[in-house]
């Protein structure tokens, strides 16, 4: 009996070890984001990343992840923009990562675009301004200037 339990437990351990090795694999969980030159939101872009895209984690620093795309481009991405695979088990896993673990697996499910389209058939709601809001983008260059001129973030006393 003990031998049987030992065998199952060792299998579970081996499985966990295999999953730990896969812990460096990340997926983008937001519609679109940038891989940045340095760990700042207003740093210049190295690549545009789309939802579900895979990245390899190289290192981590203050909530920012140094990562590499499948095309070999390296840069920085904030940890809130990526998710670790569902079954990844690490001691350092944050609460944010816990709640986001199913993010990519559940992509397009539940309250999605199809549901919004169906809902819109039954209402006269106007989404014109919502769509315009969606398209409002502040570029890295304008935010860098905004921070610099306003002495914000690294240019002032912030982070």
């Amino acid at each position: 009996m003990t031998k049987k339990i030992l065998f199952i437990a060792l299998s579970a351990l081996l499985l966990s070890a295999g999953l730990l090795m896969a812990a460096t694999s990340l997926k983008v969980r937001v519609k679109s984001t940038k891989l940045r030159r340095s760990p700042k939101f207003y740093a210049s872009s190295m690549a545009t990343l789309r939802f579900g895209e895979s990245l390899e984690k190289l290192s981590e620093q203050d909530g920012w992840i140094h990562a590499q795309t499948s095309a070999g481009t390296t840069g920085w991405i904030h940890s809130s923009a990526v998710t670790t695979p569902k079954f990844t088990v690490t001691a350092q896993r944050t609460a944010q990562e816990e709640t986001s673990a199913d993010e990519v697996a559940l992509a397009g499910k539940g309250f999605n675009e199809q549901v919004e389209q169906e809902y819109r058939k039954s209402t006269e709601l106007d989404y014109t301004w919502v769509d315009r809001m969606d398209q409002m983008v502040v570029t890295e260059a304008e935010m860098e200037r905004f921070f610099r001129e306003g002495k914000l973030g690294e240019y002032g006393g912030g982070r």
Partner: peptide, 13 residues
């Protein structure tokens, strides 16, 4: 447990 995508579609409406 609502994903960011589901939160987004709720927020739009």
């Amino acid at each position: 447990d609502l994903t960011g995508e589901q939160e987004y579609y709720l927020g739009r409406s």
